Computed example of a mutant assay.
Amino acid sequence: MTDTSAADGIPISGDPKSLRVLSTTDLAGIDISLADVVATVEGAYRTLHAGQSDNPRKLTVKPQDGHSVSYAMLGRDGSRNVVAIKTSYKHGLDKGREEQHYYTALTIYDDTTGLPVAMMDCSRIGSLRTPAVSALLARECAAPGARSALVIGTGTQGRLALPFLLTTLPNLDRLMVFGTHPDGIATVREQLRVHFPDRDIEIVTDVRAAASDADVIVATAGDHTPAAIEAEWLKPGALSVLVGHGLAPSTLHRADRVIATSEAQMNVTGTDMADDDGKLPAVDSEFPPVLAGITAGRLSSTERIFAYNSGLVVTDIALGHHFAQLAIAQGLGTEVPLWQ
C-alpha cells in the first residue's frame, strides 16, 4: 500500500513501520539547479516569516575540552506540511581536517498522512543550503552595483559559494578566493566551471588587499584559517557574510548594520565573535523580514554590513523534502522495517 504526500502528490511509503533511507550515493545522483535550490530556500524563509512554520532554537552539546560538538534541530514546514529533525555531530575539532569526522542526518515525517517520508544523509543538503543563503543575503544586502566577491575558505561551504553568488548577482566580474589547501582551491575552480564554464577564480594570497577591493566577502573557512579580516580593511559599502571563520570580531562590532538569519542562533553559535566582555551586539534585523520586504537589507550604499549565516532547520527541511520527492519519484533509497 502506498500513500501520497499532501504537498505534491509524490508517492510515499504506506507502511507506518517502514522508513525510506536515502544514502549519500542516492542523493548524489539527483540533478538540481542552483536556481531551484535558491528558490526552495527562499520559500522556506518566506513561509517562516508568514508564521506558517516553526524553527525552535537548536540544542547544542559540547564537551569541556572542545573535541566535538553536536546539534539537534527540530522544525515544521507549514507550506509542505512536514515535520523533521536534523542531527549534526562533528568529532576531532582539536585535530586537522583530515582527522575529523562529521555526520549529519535529516528525518522527515508527513504531517498530513502521519507517515514517515525519509531519513537521509544531510551533507549535500547543507552544502547547497548554506551557500544559497549567503547568495540570498548578498542579493538583498550587497551595495548596488556590486562587482567583486572574495570567498575565504575552500572546504565544503566554500566550494559552491561563488556559483551561488553568481546565481543571485550575475554582474559580479571579479571572483577572488583565499585558501590554504591546493586540492580545495582546485575543487573551487572546478565547481565554478561546472556551473559557469566561462568564468574563473583569482587566487589571492594578500587577504588584506583582497578584502579592501571586495564588495562581498563570504567567510567559510575552518577555525584553523590564518585569515582574520578586520573592519578597517573593508571598503565603504562592503558586505561581510560569516558562515564559518575568516572574519575578525571587529567586522561585527564596528558594522553599520547587522543582519542575522537568526539572532538566537547567533548568540549560541557565534560566541567566538564576542567582545572582550563576552557580548555580541544586537542585530538590526533578522533575515526573514528582509526577504519579505518588511525591513531593509541596507539603508545606504556606503554602509558596511555584517551578515551572520547560521542555518535554520526550516531551510534544511524544505530542501531535504524536495530532494526526497525527487528521489522517491526516481525509485531511489531503501525501505527499512525500522519499527518492526
Rank of each mutant, 00 (worst) to 15 (best):
T2G: 00
D3S: 11
D8K: 03
I10W: 05
I12T: 08
I12Q: 15
K17Y: 09
K17R: 12
S18M: 08
S18I: 07
S18H: 08
D26Q: 06
I32H: 00
A35S: 15
D36M: 06
D36L: 02
V37S: 02
V38I: 15
A39G: 07
V41H: 01
H49F: 13
G51W: 04
R57A: 15
R57W: 00
L59M: 10
T60K: 13
P63F: 10
D65W: 11
G66A: 09
G66R: 03
S68L: 07
V69C: 07
V69A: 09
D77T: 04
S79Y: 03
V83R: 04
V83T: 11
K86E: 08
Y89P: 00
G92E: 07
L93I: 10
D94Q: 09
R97N: 04
L106I: 12
L106W: 05
L106E: 06
D110P: 01
T112A: 15
T113V: 12
G114S: 11
V117K: 02
M119L: 12
M120R: 00
I125C: 11
I125F: 09
R129G: 05
P131Q: 09
A132T: 12
V133H: 05
S134L: 13
R139C: 02
E140D: 15
C141T: 07
A149Y: 06
L150A: 05
V151T: 15
G155S: 05
G158K: 07
R159Y: 01
R159V: 13
A161Y: 05
L166P: 01
T167H: 05
T168Q: 05
L172M: 12
L172V: 12
R174I: 02
L175C: 02
F178K: 05
G179S: 01
G179F: 08
T180L: 07
H181V: 11
H181N: 15
H181A: 14
H181P: 00
G184E: 03
T187L: 14
F196C: 09
I201K: 04
D206P: 06
T220F: 02
T220M: 06
T220G: 01
G222E: 00
H224M: 11
T225V: 10
T225S: 10
P226F: 06
A227Y: 08
I229S: 01
E230Q: 15
E232K: 08
L234S: 07
L234G: 08
L239G: 05
S240Q: 11
V241Q: 03
V243Q: 08
L247P: 06
H253Q: 03
I259K: 08
T261K: 00
S262L: 07
Q265M: 13
M266A: 10
T269V: 13
T271Y: 01
M273D: 08
D275I: 04
K279A: 14
L280W: 06
D284C: 10
D284I: 14
E286Q: 10
P288Y: 12
P289F: 10
V290M: 04
R298G: 09
R298P: 09
L299C: 09
T302N: 12
T302P: 00
F306H: 11
G311S: 15
G311C: 10
D316P: 08
D316H: 10
I317P: 03
A318L: 07
H321K: 01
I328W: 04
A329F: 03
Q330G: 05
G331T: 11
G331D: 08
G333P: 06
E335K: 02
V336A: 10
V336R: 03
V336N: 01
L338F: 15
W339C: 07
W339I: 09
W339N: 08
Q340E: 15
